[in-house]
Design a protein around this nucleic acid. Structure first.
Length: 120
DNA sequence: ACGATGACAATGC
DNA sequence: TGCATTGCCATCG
């Protein structure tokens, strides 16, 4: 049987696991915001937690570069190593990113705009 | 306990 | 678009 009581640590680990799963679920060529990831993970308002987590966990299969700030820009300071790397990875996936770090999604391919698209 | 900090977000100008 | 302000959460010294 499972332990009668889950340690607080296990709870945190569960959160991490879900967040990473959400990030891994972002399709190549698409992006998501920190807050968006947090919400999908069932942790509304914990955008900064997502950021902290991504900073710590560097798994090879983790598409951390697809996570952007809510304004659609790379979170790293322009010119910083992380910025350069993320920019490189995003462009490698076919995304159009300005040198300033802004990702051009070609409108707003979020759920709403997709669901409202009349016909095409 | 308390203030500073950070891969953030929402709002207003 | 860009910048400043405020709110939030988790760590750290």
């Amino acid at each position: 049987m499972l332990p009668a009581v889950e340690r607080d640590d296990d709870c945190d680990q569960a959160r991490r696991r879900v967040i990473l799963a959400v990030v891994r679920a972002i399709p190549a060529g698409q992006v998501a915001g920190y807050g968006e990831v947090a919400r999908r993970a069932g942790l509304p308002g914990r955008a900064r937690l997502v950021a902290r987590l991504l900073a710590r966990s560097a798994q090879s299969d983790l598409p951390w570069h697809r996570v952007l700030r809510s304004d659609g820009r790379i979170a790293f300071a322009p010119g910083s190593p992380g910025f350069v790397e993320q920019l490189r990875r995003l462009r490698a996936e076919g995304l159009v990113v300005s040198d300033s770090g802004r990702v051009m999604t070609g409108g707003a391919p979020d759920l709403d705009s997709l669901l409202w698209k009349p016909a095409d």
